[in-house]
């Protein structure tokens, strides 16, 4: 136990030294220590978007000092038609705002907890190298804010979430989102459409679809028996009239995350094959994939060229979640039918 404390104290000291260095303006990292360019050439305010929209691909090609401001808002929203739920959000929606930065960027991250909040909140960004992914320095009371700085060392698609205790409760109420760190080498090629989808599981006192304001059910959460499993925070958030639009011949890239807290997603698009999957949101690219796993607290980037028109269903292929718990989004593809790919043979 003593050793643990010593290590903890050492970490605190190191964090303090790090902070004092940053405060004195020394924000460069030795190139050989990271193998990436870290010389800051300018400042940028990050574009933040609500799902299913993505921030535009970054146009700068050298490291920037990036400002990110994220507000924590506790609010009642529809989880399904006629069903309300008190969500805790990063930016007012579930999932939280999408953040897009570039490897080597120095990010000044401010977390603001709105004065109306009942509870304190913090943020753990899986893209952060440092104590708690930022959580250790951002536990913010209602009406307060905290700022920390991190270097985006590793490229990839990362989940962020609240890590205030009890962590599971904060995540179950919708406190997660995605941050994409564009790599310095070999950035993703431009595609026609980019969308942001994030899965989450929800536990309500009432059953699926039971009307009125539904409260969180801790028993069900502990038993891992969700009433709702959803893309983008509500039933039909991106289905039917809200389906994601695309045209025949276009390449669609989905930035997919899974907030959990409990379920692992068997991510699948009915009637399409992923031409490319950035497995677990990292460097590894798999091709020609039918279903890819998106772990709770994990991600994947999938790409597909839409060769044929129609409604394409995005599902968790743990399929009762789709048919009975709301886990459905859709891509609506418009354009000419290509008989050489698909067609019914009439008798």
């Amino acid at each position: 136990m003593k050793t643990n404390w010593l290590i903890f104290l050492l970490m605190v000291c190191m964090a303090a030294i790090q902070t004092s260095c940053n405060n004195s303006g020394d924000t460069t990292v030795k190139k050989e220590s990271t193998g990436i360019d870290t010389v800051i050439t300018g400042t940028v305010k990050a574009e933040l978007t609500d799902a299913p929209l993505m921030p535009k691909p970054l146009t700068y090609t050298t490291p920037q000092r990036v400002t990110v401001e994220l507000e924590v808002i506790e609010k009642v929203m529809q989880i399904a038609e006629g069903v309300d739920y008190t969500f805790w959000t990063f930016g007012g929606k579930v999932p939280g705002k999408f953040i897009r930065v570039r490897q080597g960027d120095l990010v000044d991250f401010t977390l603001i907890n709105m004065p109306d909040s009942k509870l304190p909140h913090n943020i753990d960004l899986h893209a952060v190298t440092g104590p708690g992914g930022g959580a250790a320095v951002t536990n913010v009371s209602p009406g307060q804010s905290a700022t920390f700085q991190f270097r985006a060392l590793n490229p990839g698609l990362y989940v962020y979430h609240c890590a205030t205790g009890p962590v599971g409760l904060h995540i179950a109420n919708g406190m997660y989102g995605l941050i994409y760190v564009e790599p310095q080498k070999n950035p993703l090629p431009a595609v026609d459409k980019e969308y942001y989808l994030m899965q989450g599981d929800y536990y309500t006192k009432g059953k699926f679809g039971e009307k009125g304001l539904q409260e969180f059910d801790m028993d069900k959460a502990i038993r891992e028996e969700p009433d709702y499993v959803l893309f983008n925070g509500s039933v039909n958030a991106n289905a039917g009239p809200n389906a994601l639009p695309a045209k025949v011949g276009e390449t669609v890239r989905l930035f997919v995350g899974n907030g959990g807290p409990n379920m692992v997603s068997s991510f699948h698009v009915i009637g399409e094959i992923f031409d490319k999957v950035h497995v677990e949101g990292g460097d590894l690219i798999n091709t020609n994939v039918q279903t890819t796993i998106v772990p709770a607290g994990g991600s994947a980037i999938v790409e597909m060229t839409m060769d044929y028109p129609g409604m394409f269903h995005i599902v968790d292929h743990s399929i009762f979640r789709t048919f009975n718990k709301g886990c459905l989004a859709q891509i609506k593809v418009e354009g000419e039918k290509n008989r050489s790919i698909f067609g019914e043979i009439k008798k």
């Binding site: 509870l119 304190p120 536990n139 009371s141 209602p142 009406g143 307060q144 205790g165 009890p166 409760l169």
Partner: peptide
């Protein structure tokens, strides 16, 4: 869990904070 929330809340406070 209720106690956990209270302790998280108290842990986030500083003596000069004035909160809703």
């Amino acid at each position: 869990y209720a106690a956990f929330l209270r302790f998280s809340y108290r842990g986030s406070l500083k003596g000069n904070y004035c909160i809703a």
